[in-house]
Structure formats: C-alpha cells, structure tokens
Amino acid sequence: MRIQRLLSRSFVHFAVIAIAFLWTLPTVGVLVSSFRPENDVKNSGWWNALKHPFEESVWTFKNYADVINANGLGEAFVNTLVVTIPATILPITVAAFAAYAFAWMKFPGRDWLFAMVIGLMVVPLQVALIPILRLYTQTGIAGTFLGLWLAHTGFGLPLAIYLLYNYISQLPGDLIESAKIDGASDFTVFMRIVLPLSTPAIASFAIFQFLWIWNDLLVSLVFLGTNKVLTVKLSELTGSLGNKWHLLTAGAFVSMIVPLAVFFALQRYFVRGLLAGSVKG
C-alpha cells in the first residue's frame, strides 16, 4: 500500500514536470537562439548552446541590435505603444460611463438597450473590416492612430460594458443614493465613488484588453497602413527573413517582452480577468 502510494506520488510529480517542461521547450528554444551568433544558429541546433553555457563566444546581443534598428522593430515597438495604451483606456472609459448609466440611472429604453449591448457580444469583429475600411477611406481617417483606437474601442465595448456592469451594479446602493441626496450629481458620484470602488474590475479588464490589442494582428493589418505595429512587422519579417533564425527569434522576443512583463507583474489580476471574461468571443 505504502509503496503503491509512493509510486503514484512520483508518477504525478513526473507527469507534472514533464508536461511543464514540454510546454516551455518551444519558447526556451527561441529565447536561447535569439542570443546566439548568426553562424552558430545556422549550423547547429539551439540545444547545443547549452552544452557550454559559460563560454562567452556562445552568446551575443547583436541580433537584438540588428532587429531593433535595421529591421525597424524599434519603431514598430513605439507604434504598438501608441496604439495599445489609448486603445485600452478609451473602451474602459466609455464602458464605465455606460455601465454606470445602465446600473444606476433611470432613462427610457434602458433595459432593451442593455440587452442589445449584450447581444452584440456575439458579433465577430470580422464583419466590421470591409464596411469600416470603406467608411474610413471616405472620411479620411484611414491609416491614422485615431481610426485604429476607435475600431478597437468599438470591438472591445460589449465585453467591457458587460463586465463593468456586473461589477458596478453590485456596488452598495445606499452609498450612491445617499451621495445623491447630499446633492452630488451623477457625474460626481461616478467620478468620486463608483470609479475608485471599481478599480479591481477595471484593472482586470485593462490587462485583458491591453494584451489583446498588443497581440492583435488582423485589426492593425487592415486599418493602420504605414504605422506598422509589432505583430504586423514581425509577420512581414517571417516572410522576408525566411531562414535567418537569429533575427526572427530575437524579433519574436521583442514582441513578447511587454506581455511577459505584464503577465509576471500582474498575474493575479490577469487570472481574475480571465475568469470573469471567459465569454469573450
């Protein structure tokens, strides 16, 4: 009995470690290769670098310098920031105002408007590409950051409103009523009471939206013309660089560094957002 338990314990440990190891292997391969000199990458598998990890000639930063400067990933990195930060803040702001109104303000048609918002969660953003691109070309905001922010905002809104509504509508009603009786306007109540209390929900959604936009390829590809973001640039490089693995691997890591930092710094919120947002389509 004891031996049997010991065996099944060690089987569990073995299985868990093996799975985790296998899952991480592809990423580790890219990370290791991105720091190896061009000739090494070309001539031997990345695992060979780990045989002599302490020899200085095995490692280099040159791939990163090349890919950031010569291949334009540095510029794409800045573009991605300019796209991602506003495209995270805009939907949260617009959704928070709307969620507050749906939860705490009285106006005709409130319930069916809210039902419509929830209903729009089922619409995949692919439907927007052709009509919106035509609209943008007519109005002249095709290819601008503004156009991309607004598109991301529109696509992110149904989920954002839904999640923030779930949270804001659960806030204690007494608090909001008594503030209004004291003469606070809806605007003040929203800014001073509702927003600060909703920080956890906002933070969870923000991380979700941030990563989603940072990693988005399709929307940027269609709407952002010349200001290429990391995903667009990297997908071009996979075509043009072909087998220059020392550059491609470094490029992949440049595109991953911010999500990785966000993930490790805010893992708790990330998981919470994931649990709340698992209805996203």
């Binding site: 890219v30 990563l211 940072w214 995903t231 996979t238 491609l248 691997t249 999500p259």
Partner: peptide, 19 residues
C-alpha cells in the same frame, strides 16, 4: 508555465513554432 503561451501573440507563437 502552461498558460504563458496565452499571453504571446499568435504571430510570436508562429515564429516559435516555425522554428
């Protein structure tokens, strides 16, 4: 370690797996 890939873009994952 298992859900790390989730935060990587599909494009980044594409490079990882092409390799």
């Amino acid at each position: 370690m298992i859900f790390l890939p989730m935060i990587i873009s599909f494009v980044g994952a594409g490079v990882i797996w092409r390799f």
